[in-house]
Design a protein around this nucleic acid. Structure first.
Lengths: 158, 158
DNA sequence: CCTAAGAAGTTGAATTCTGAACGAAGCCTG
DNA sequence: CAGGCTTCGTTCAGAATTCAACTTCTTAGG
């Protein structure tokens, strides 16, 4: 008799949904990257700028920024170094915890954001948002929210 | 008078959908990667194995494989070299076009696939498919298909 | 206080990825 | 069949990413 559990393979329809999802994912990421290139930014650069510009005092602790952008501390450290060299960001000491550092948006960083954001939004619209009905969009969000929450729970250290 | 076009910013609801999408994206990729780690495979490895094992004769031309997996020829070339060293794949000459090469699944590659696939499917189910109702899933697919088609059109060389 | 455990960030070496340049082979067109 | 394009795949150099120390500082216990 069979003791091992049979694999619960994906149905055709599940498989197709999954693959479509993966494809969109990759192509979209790639397209966003391409649309940022003329400004000399990567997706990662842009995301950090977004996080910082929305933060209180245009600054975030390295750890918080790493958590917000879902990357390892090491990666973020290198990343910030690059952005610092590019003049978009600077490091500042944290008074209350002397181990800590803030990544702070510079004036040039703010200006870059202001210049680039409209193009980025246009790109997001063109390649994603505007291709979905507003109903599809809110369904999407409703469907994906539990997935996001599930994953947040499962997420180990990066 | 204003000559420049005002930016068509995202509404709150659009923004939220977009960010949820991005988050799921990243966390899911990360989780899949983590679930493959015990088998010594990356997402990229796995995807190549899938493509090859579904192909006629367990083989694909380098170019076709690159196109199928949406990566540059350069990256694929490195990737296949690594997988060749790991014994999962081998290169074989193409008779009909002497510029060409096939990436071919080895016996070890097939066995790896057979061993890993069930776990991978379980992971996809656990972290994605089974968290969505079957209706949500088919809606998702329906919503994303046009996006995928749009992006396929726009896609330049990698 | 003093110490051990843990957290914040950085560093450097090894790996992977990107983009341009390249050689080799096929495909036109005249 | 010569000339010039294009395609196939690799290679190289430079950039980004990972992984495992490592330093510095904080905090909790005794």
């Amino acid at each position: 008799m069979e003791t091992e559990t049979a694999t619960n393979w994906l149905t055709d329809s599940e498989q197709c949904a999954w693959r479509t999802y993966l494809d969109v994912n990759r192509m979209l990421t790639h397209q966003m990257e391409k649309d940022l290139q003329p400004f000399g930014l990567t997706n990662n650069d842009y995301e950090i700028l977004v996080n910082l510009s929305e933060a209180e005092g245009q600054r975030l602790r390295m750890s918080d920024l790493a958590a917000a952008t879902l990357q390892s501390k090491s990666r973020l450290s290198h990343q910030i170094t690059r952005m610092e060299n590019a003049g978009l960001v600077r490091r500042e000491n944290c008074e209350s915890d002397r181990r800590g550092l803030f990544a702070v948006l510079t004036e040039a960083g703010v200006e870059t954001m202001e210049k680039v954001a409209p193009h980025h939004v246009a790109s997001v619209r063109k390649h994603f948002i505007d291709l979905l009905s507003s109903e599809a969009l809110s369904d999407l969000r409703a469907s994906l929210t539990p997935v996001a929450e599930h994953l947040r729970g499962h997420r180990g250290k990066l």
